[in-house]
Design a binder for these strands. Structure first.
Lengths: 144, 144
DNA sequence: TCCACCTAAGTTGTGCACAACTTACTTGTG
DNA sequence: CACAAGTAAGTTGTGCACAACTTAGGTGGA
């Protein structure tokens, strides 16, 4: 046997597992809203400020049009947003929330508490974790 | 506007982003080995101990047969492993490494260093992060 | 013994991620 | 003005995740 890396020593695997476990906790709650986790992320972006272009949304979430175009079509099919070609720049598609889309934020308010409750970490630990992950993500993006 | 949750306050999004950024750093390195990140994880499990059943591998990684069955077929097509029906229990499929599969671990030894270098965190910070993520993942699984 | 139940693996279908490419529109420069 | 270069969004193809289901083999009582 060689000096193969150990699974349980890998930060990358720890991130991968924690991320999947976290979305798994969100899944049943989001299912009540009829959303997947990535769809919920897009709605978060739109609830903060809309209308937004596809590219803007992608920059917030780190996703490209290959992921977002079909996802936004599904949100439109759900009646939560509308895709309108911009008048000034015909390349742009502005994503507007519908009344139903805005309404949904009311039901989404309590969602982040779920994770906090299930996390088994103190508020300070969660806060520090978020901060460390933010630094890590930024550094990894620079490296990439 | 309502009290919609803020994207940048969400630990779940921080995990999701960090996880994708980390696998993005691994991707070009793994591409040289001809592996995706989940395939690399399966190889890590097998390098540690083989043969293994599909279920065992799934328990290590938190993946089910719906994900692993096609993934293992692709690893077999790459000539890295073989799937053999167990004699004692005909339901089981034992995954054996081929010589090429074992050989690959030689080239994989330096991979985890990549992330450590790109992470922009100290060794202690990475260690603590891994530990916190481990606790978090365990708690989230309990909650789920 | 038999058969209801359990278990391992595989299959099907949906929805991300992401690379690579296409299309349509805009802009800067000669 | 013309047109090369750039940009926004969409499309195509591959490979996860995961739910729901199927298939086939094993197991433990009544």
């Amino acid at each position: 046997m060689t000096d193969a890396p150990r699974l349980d020593h890998q930060v990358c695997f720890a991130l991968y597992s924690a991320s999947r476990a976290a979305t798994a906790v969100y899944r049943p709650v989001l299912e009540e809203l009829g959303l997947t986790y990535p769809q919920y992320l897009v709605m978060l972006v739109l609830w903060e400020n809309e209308p937004r272009g596809v590219k803007e949304i992608g920059e917030e979430l780190g996703l490209d049009s290959g992921t977002l175009s079909p996802l936004l079509k599904r949100l439109e099919a759900l009646g939560l947003c509308e895709r309108r070609r911009s008048g000034e720049d015909e390349r742009r598609v502005a994503i507007h929330l519908t009344p139903a889309g805005r309404e949904l934020s009311r039901n989404a308010g309590a969602i982040p508490q779920r994770l906090a409750q299930a996390a088994g970490l103190t508020a300070e630990e969660l806060d520090q974790l978020r901060h460390t992950l933010g630094r890590l993500t930024a550094a990894l993006h620079d490296a990439h």
